[in-house]
Structure formats: C-alpha cells, structure tokens
Design a protein around this nucleic acid. Structure first.
Lengths: 203, 203
DNA sequence: TCCTTATGTAAGTGCATACTTACACCTATA
DNA sequence: TATAGGTGTAAGTATGCACTTACATAAGGA
C-alpha cells in the first residue's frame, strides 16, 4: 500500500473517531505509520487532507449502489430481507476497519459544520432513497404493494438501518441480538405491519 | 435567568453545534453574555462544565417520559400517530433553542468518545424503548397486534424519528415535507405494512 | 557513480486556547 | 456608610497543535 493511501485510510479512521477538530496530524501519522511531516508534504494541510478523504470515500461509496440492486423477481419480503442484511453487514463489517461506517459517522458529525460534507451526505442519501423508491413504485404498479408513498417507505426502511448503525457506535452491543434475526423481524414488521389483519382476526 | 443557567444553556448550544473539542470557552461566554472568566469561577474547567451540562439535561430529558405516555383506549394507529407527532415536535422544535435536539446531537457525537455520555444515551434510549415495548406487549395481549417482537417494533418505531431528526440537522429541509403528513405516512406503513393484504387482494 | 525522489529525524515558529491573577465596579444588606 | 459577594476588564501563562525548515538516508535510474 502506498504512502498516500496509508495516510488517507488513517485519516478517515481518526477523523471518524475523533472528529475533524479532535483529530491531530500526529495521531494520523502514527496510525498510518509515517512521519508527521510526510502528511504535509503530500497533502499541504489538515484541511486539504479532509478534502481528499471526502473525495476518495465519496467515490467509493457511490460505487456501492450495487448494494441496492434488487432482484425484483422473487418475493418482496425476501428481497428486502436480503437488502437489509447487505446494508447491515456493510455498515457494521470490520473489514477495512469498517470504512463505510467511519465515513458515515464523519458525514453525520462533520456535516453539521461543513456544507461540503452535508452535500455529500445529502447526495448519497438521496441516491439510496431514489433506488429504493423506484423499487417500491414498481411493485405498487405490479400490484404487489399497497398504494403507499414510495419515498416515505424508502425513508422508513433506510432509517432503521442507519439509526441502528449509528447507535451501535455508541451504546453497548448487547442492546441488539443477532443481526440476521433482527433484520428479519424488522422486515416482517415493515412488510406486514404490526396490526392484526382482517384474515388474522377472523382465522 | 441566573448566571449559572445562562452559561449552562449556552454551553449546551455550543457543545451541541461545535462538539466539545470544537467549542471554545470564549464562544460559550459570548453566547451566554458573560465574561469568559465567569465560566471558570462557576465551573472551574471546561471539562467540568460539560459534566454539569450532562447532569442537568439528563434530568430534564428523563422527565420527558411523559411524552411517551400513551392512551391505550383509543385506536392504535391514532395513538402512534399522536406519539410520533409529539416526538417529532419535541426533537425539532425551536423552543429553548431546540435544547432536546442539541442534547441528542451531543449524546450521539460525544458518546462515541466518552463513556459517561454513552451511558446517558444508552439509558435514555432504553427507557424509551421499554415504554414503547410495554405498550406493544399489552396490545398483543389485547389481541390487537400480531405476535411481533415488541422490542423490535419499538426499535423500528423510534429509529424513524431519531434518524430523521439527526438527518434534519445535516441535509437541507426540503427532503421532507410537512411533518404531520410524514408522520401519518410512516405510521400507516408501520401499522399496516407495505404489502397488499389478502383482503385487499381479494376485495 | 551521481542525481533524483521519497521518506525520516529534529528542531523550531506562531497561534489559539484553557485557565490564572489582579484589580475595579456595582449592588445589596448590615 | 461600610462590607461582602458577584461580575467585568485586562493582562498574562503554559500548552498543544498545525505547519515549516534543514538536514540525513536510502533506493532506483541515468
């Protein structure tokens, strides 16, 4: 791995966990196993390093819309359950030091202070919502879904996964059990609702 | 309003928007309309000021469980819709400079770095989840709800409101329309699910 | 062998910030 | 009127951090 990449990865990690203000270039250098001065030679300033981190990870996360590709042949509940699992895994995986999760933390935290960051969160978010909305819209036309607002459904669906991931960064792990089971329970509620339906009440 | 309270309010506001590290005592003093040195006379250190802010707002937010009191006489969908509206309003209201929202931001942001803060977020969150779970459990026993996991339902319900509030702090307001309408749409999905039910398909 | 390029080591600069100290002022109350 | 408590002004200290400069070293290519 080349020096630039080592630094960028370390920066994401430190920015993500300490916040931009809380992160020190010394800390990033340590994490990257390079001399502090190397950071400035490559990236000029901490500010600029952030910019590069944003550019790189934005690109990376945009490719991630593959995650949202849904087979709309099979059963809807199964589709959503699979999708949910993929999102959960991606946001919680420890691979690459949980880069996507770290990036999400950064977007939420720094987004409140920096319009450039907010813009990234907005666009990534809109992209995911659009993908999901289209799917729901299609399934409404196919007569498989009720006439709900597809955007609202997409927002409700995504909210669960984003929120639980954010939460996992703070509260201890014990508050949720097995990921797959939780996803199944959520999908069940999301697709069927919590109310007893007529046929349930009758049967 | 006495000096201590002015400082505590200002501190919450500045910590909430800039983060603990990003917040400066000068900024807090300005916001509170006091001299910077007054802060140190009253609270000794920035660290200790944070501690006091946490204590005070934790107490305040715990009283807020009134918000979660649910009339379980009327229709469930109406109950949840009302509850959702109350939560939404509370988390988005500009009253008192949106103290609850600011506090929530703080909990999520600083909670990743400070165990004392994480502990507060955990306990507040658990309290809300418990309240909601109990309600769902009761309604399952009443035969009004399907046999879902009440904790999962509570988590799904809360996730929507917390996530959208966090999001509102970052992305521009246009991504969501009228609060009340959005809450209604969400509650509809949450109670009835997105799938067409048997009777819908038949009838 | 020399030159270039990438990196490290070491020392230092300037600035922002948490926190301190000393003193003045004002207001209420004895 | 005198005293005490709460607050402001002003100046200063110490520290940590972003960033710089100067110099050494090691590797690869001409």
């Amino acid at each position: 791995m080349n020096t630039e990449d080592k630094i960028l990865d370390a920066a994401l990690k430190v920015f993500g966990s300490e916040g931009f203000t809380g992160a020190t270039t010394r800390r990033i250098a340590e994490e990257a196993n390079v001399a502090e001065v190397t950071i400035f030679r490559k990236f000029q300033s901490k500010e600029n390093l952030l910019k590069e981190v944003l550019i790189r990870n934005r690109a990376e996360i945009s490719e991630l819309d593959v995650l949202f590709r849904i087979d709309n042949d099979t059963d809807i509940e199964t589709d959503l359950c699979d999708l949910g699992r993929r999102i959960s895994r991606d946001l919680r995986s420890k691979k690459q030091d949980g880069k996507h999760r770290m990036f999400m933390f950064m977007l939420f935290e720094e987004g409140r202070r920096r319009p450039e960051v907010a813009e990234i969160l907005t666009s990534v978010f809109q992209m995911y919502i659009s993908r999901l909305s289209e799917y729901f819209q299609l399934q409404i036309q196919n007569g498989k879904l009720r006439n709900i607002n597809p955007r609202s459904a997409a927002l409700a669906f995504l909210s669960y996964f984003v929120h639980t991931s954010l939460l996992k960064g703070v509260v201890d792990d014990s508050f949720m059990g097995d990921i797959d089971e939780e996803v199944e329970r959520f999908t069940d509620i999301f697709t069927h609702g919590i109310l007893k339906t007529m046929d349930n009440k009758v049967g």
